[in-house]
Design a protein around this nucleic acid. Structure first.
Length: 442
RNA sequence: GGCCCCAUCGUCUAAUGGUUAGGACGUCGGCUUUUCAAGCCGAAAACCGGGGUUCGACUCCCCGUGGGGCUACCA
């Protein structure tokens, strides 16, 4: 167990150079959010892509909280991020790292940079010396090499005047210390990347390769952020979306496989995802498409799973029957209760529906339906349908002239699951009681 | 302002010099029909503009235009 990694065929490798350490080619990714509250969908996608890259390559996934800004970095905010990742079933290796926890190392590096002449103090803060000439190239797997001329970059601050390390320094050092090989993050970080590369070069270290993802935009075309009513993972969860649907949908925001496939299981994503098929232009989050996709996932669940999910979401029990009747009609878990609540909490109060279908004629037809159902044996989908269709024929009315009044009588409104199935699920006693109530409630 | 990135239907995308520019969501129409959905069938809908390069450009290059990001002793 402890040395399986160096197991090799008998007699092999004699005279060959030593086998490289298994870690040499290992991809190490990291997701490094700053804890500003709920994880928004852009952050979720960044986390997902890193995770797919790590898991797809047998590499490692690091979670690091960028908490050097102590004001924003509350435990609640950190918990929100972890909660969101857990809900998405995105995991990581080892404990979450705290950037603030590495401060002594950061301070050490700042000292080192000062001593080597790469950094200097200015009005108490510490700045990195950026040469006037030359350029820094960022190796980006998505965009190709991106070149920044040094003349456009000022000497930038790496430590505050109170000595505390700043973001660009902390990121570069932490990525280095963790052995991060692939920095995959939003494009909003691209302009800062040459600074991080310069810090690494000043330390005589090789920078990682980068992959700057296109940003996610709101419907207004601006960067998706808290201010734009951005969908956070928690909001999506509370709106009744399934984690597997959110994973599938967000994977497609900036990445595509071919012209045939839209649905990808998580295993398929792990297998098929690659950075070279990630696009370069910003994408707009489209809740409509997510809803459609979520509905498809919902319909793919087996009845037991769906019931469990609905019961967890609504906090109610005994939903199996209603779940079965609604599975074709809902796109999110939240769609269920408005459609099926009447089974449990009684008919809704839709005055318009009442007025339209429970007029005198409607109530008269209800009476006929009631009689047909009162002694029906057995009381099943099929027998109910047969009985009510007989009534339709006998009264010589259109089917909906009978069925809609019945629907309103039992559900309170014009939209419901199939009427025969609904009656059967409700049971004879409750069905008759609701019909009676509708007839008498003139 | 400076620097950087980006540009195919309304939206997400496929195409990697030669296609009637494909698919999906949404929209519209039809079928089905007990409502609403779901499902099935069909339709409308795109290469930002201008120059090059090439026998041939959505694809390569340049310039515009447009959008976005960064430009903190925030991350």
């Amino acid at each position: 167990m402890d040395n399986f990694a160096i197991k090799r065929p008998e007699g092999g490798r004699v005279g060959l150079p030593p086998m490289p350490e298994p870690s040499t080619n290992e991809i190490v990714c990291r997701f490094a959010p700053s804890p500003t509250g709920q994880l928004h969908i852009g952050g979720a996608r960044t986390a997902l892509y890193n995770w797919l890259l790590a898991r797809g390559s047998g590499g490692r996934m690091i979670l690091r909280i960028e908490d050097t800004d102590r004001v924003r970095s509350t435990k609640e905010n950190v918990d929100q991020i972890i909660e969101a990742l857990e809900w998405l079933e995105i995991d990581w290796d080892g404990d979450p790292l705290s950037q603030a926890g590495h401060q002594s190392r950061h301070l050490e590096v700042i000292q080192q940079l000062k001593q080597s002449g790469h950094a200097y103090e200015h009005e108490g803060a510490t700045r990195l010396r950026v040469p006037e000439d030359g350029e820094t190239v960022v190796r980006d797997l998505i965009r190709g090499d991106v070149t920044f001329k040094h003349e456009a970059i000022d000497d930038f601050t790496i430590a505050r005047s109170d000595g505390s390390p700043l973001y660009n320094l902390a990121v570069a050092v932490d990525d280095l210390d963790s052995g991060v090989t692939h920095v995959v993050r939003g494009e909003d970080h691209l302009s800062n990347t040459p600074r991080q590369v310069m810090i690494l070069k000043a330390l005589e270290q090789e920078p990682p390769v980068y992959g700057h993802l296109p940003l996610l935009h709101g419907p207004d075309g601006k960067k998706l952020s808290k201010r734009h009513g951005a969908a956070s993972v928690q909001e999506l969860r509370d709106a009744g979306f399934l984690p597997q649907a959110v994973r599938n949908y967000t994977a497609l925001l900036g990445w595509g496989y071919d012209d045939k496939q839209t649905f990808f299981s998580t295993d398929e994503l792990v297998k098929l995802f690659s950075l070279d098929r990630v696009g370069r232009s910003a994408a707009v989050f489209d809740e409509q498409k997510l809803r459609w996709m979520n509905g498809t996932y919902l319909r793919e669940m087996d009845p037991g799973q769906l019931t469990v999910a609905l019961e967890a979401f609504t906090g109610r029990d005994g939903l199996a029957g209603a779940a079965g009747l609604c599975r074709e009609k809902i796109q999110t878990l939240a769609d269920f209760w408005p459609l099926a609540g009447f089974f449990f909490d009684g008919p809704a109060e839709d005055a318009k529906a009442h007025a339209k279908f429970l007029d005198e004629e409607g109530r008269a037809r209800l009476g006929e339906a009631r009689d047909a159902l009162a002694t029906l044996e057995p009381f099943t989908d099929e027998s109910i349908e047969n009985a009510l269709r007989e009534v339709v024929e006998r009264l010589d009315v259109k089917p909906k002239q009978l069925f809609q009044p019945v629907r309103v009588a039992i559900s309170g409104t014009t939209i419901s699951p199939g009427i025969f199935e609904s009656l059967a699920l409700l049971g004879r006693e409750e069905s008759l009681s609701r019909i009676d109530k509708a007839i008498s409630a003139a």
